[in-house]
């Protein structure tokens, strides 16, 4: 940046002006719940990424003699499943698919939904009508049913369940983006930008996007937990990934029959889903309050 020294003024004094993101970070650093959630999520994500190196055993290796061992069995810290596979290794590997199926649809929906919502909110009028009423149609169905219906129509498989979950999450994100954009559009600084002769695209890029994406991003973070649960549900119903792939929802499904034999081991995939989704939820709450400028 050009540092022009104006006559009669003190030369550059270093000033501690906090930027927006640094003030968000400062507020976040005092919030222990959110930090704990971030750490737990980081552990889960890293262990999923480095699963082949971390997992103590082969998640596909079956054994008839050591089926459904208890938690704490030597060599199998979290026991074994109904085919004698190491639960710990399967849970670590299962995180890969579960997280991909949980996060990818939300990212896709975030991109498509924000675009639709910002266009609807900024342009208004008939375009808003068309987009928002179309979105309302999707609200007529419960999200679980909609995901099952689309998945069922497209057929089982990883890509198809991601597509179906993306479609499920576009309407809520569009709605949030639209309502935030509508409120931002009516603020004086957008009027002032129009008064300085800027076109619609420039105003969206400079003035609307930065103010809309924050709240939408926070909302989307909250949806990740829902997405993981829905993805697990699809796998549980046989519409997601197929055996013998390790995936938390699918594992929950296959272990279901053994619940009376060894309930603790059978509950483990559910515990992982629970921890991951609650961490995403609490993190989104923490982000929401940290990103509130007026706080």
């Amino acid at each position: 940046m050009a540092e022009t020294t104006l006559p009669g003024l003190v030369p550059d004094v270093p000033i501690a002006s906090r930027g927006y993101w640094s003030s968000v970070f400062r507020r976040l650093s005092g919030d222990w719940t959110t930090i704990l959630c971030l750490v737990v999520l980081l552990i889960i994500i890293l262990s999923a990424v480095f699963a082949p190196w971390i997992a103590p055993a082969d998640p596909y290796k079956t054994s008839v003699i050591r089926r459904l061992k208890d938690i704490g069995t030597p060599g199998f810290p979290l026991g074994t499943d109904e085919l004698g596979r190491d639960m710990l290794s399967r849970l670590i590997h299962g995180g890969r698919l579960s997280l991909v199926m949980g996060i990818t649809p939300v990212i896709n929906a975030l991109i498509i939904g924000s675009f639709l919502g910002i266009v609807a909110g900024f342009v208004g009028g008939k375009i808003n009508m068309v987009i928002m009423r179309t979105v309302d149609v999707f609200y007529a169905f419960p999200s679980v049913l909609l995901a099952i219906a689309i998945s069922g129509a497209l057929g089982a498989g990883l890509v198809n369940s991601i597509v179906s979950l993306t479609i499920v999450f576009i309407p809520p994100i569009t709605r949030v983006a639209e309502s935030v954009t509508t409120s931002v559009r009516n603020l004086d600084f957008v009027e002032a930008a129009r008064a300085s002769g800027a076109g619609g695209f420039t105003i969206i890029r400079v003035h609307v996007l930065g103010n809309v994406l924050g709240p939408v991003f926070v909302f989307a973070t909250g949806l990740i937990s829902v997405s993981i649960i829905l993805a697990s549900g699809l796998s549980f119903l046989g519409l997601g990934v197929r055996p013998p792939e390790p995936e938390w929802g699918l594992m929950l499904n296959t272990l279901r029959q053994s619940i009376y034999v060894n309930p603790w081991v059978c509950a483990l995939p559910g515990v992982m889903i629970f921890i991951t989704s609650i961490c995403f939820n609490l993190m989104s709450d923490g982000l929401r309050s940290a990103m509130d400028v007026r706080a």
């Binding site: 600084f189 009027e191 103010n211 400028v293």
Partner: peptide, 11 residues
């Protein structure tokens, strides 16, 4: 404008 806060982009 009248509202000095609303007429500046907070970001």
């Amino acid at each position: 404008f009248q509202d000095s806060y609303a007429s500046l982009n907070p970001r």
